[in-house]
Nucleic acid binder design. Sequence first.
DNA 1: TTCGTGATAGAG
DNA 2: TCTATCACGAAG
Length: 199
Amino acid sequence: MGGRKRLGRSFFEAGVLDCARGLIGCELRWGGLRGVVVETEAYAEHGDPACHTASRPGTRAFVRDFPAGSAYVYFNYGMHWMLNVLTKSSAQGNGLVLIRALRPTGGLDVMRRRRAARLRREPPGHDRWLCSGPGKLAAALAVTGEDHGRDLCHGAGVHGFFRGAGGVAEIVATPRIGISKAVDFPWRFVAAGDSYVSR
DNA sequence: TTCGTGATAGAG
DNA sequence: TCTATCACGAAG
């Protein structure tokens, strides 16, 4: 049960695939809320047509100007915020890791309130519905454009940061969800058999 | 399966 | 100015 240490800048100065895989099982802390990362996707700055850097100059500028471990947050489909983390490796290139799902472990009441506010009827029973998708997760944590560029590494009082994995069972790689380009890249990582993943 | 909803970027 | 596209999710 080691690895409860907070992830520092150097963790995000690795290849984006290593980072995306390595974040599975880590704890995300966001304000007073907590959850274990159970699903991520990797997007590479170069050679990946599905990455925003392939089509968006603004994203290319962000990758150039911000340090590894910065939050890259954007608004999609007119209603969902997406939380990503910037990775930068001089050897392996830069990239973005989309945080797709959490198993919530702290602040469940707050998450329930925020998520239920968007629903007509709150789903009964299990709390799987809270953070089992990138848009849901952002709503539960109240991630917005205000968080874009936030440093998830530096300082003692940072709002959001990760803590090391505490014993991950098995990680499976699959194709990424919801994209139309490079659909065959197996760059989605999930905690095997976990019931808190999306879809 | 349908559709809501808005930012971004490139074309015209 | 116009339009295509988009890393989604709820309701039907």
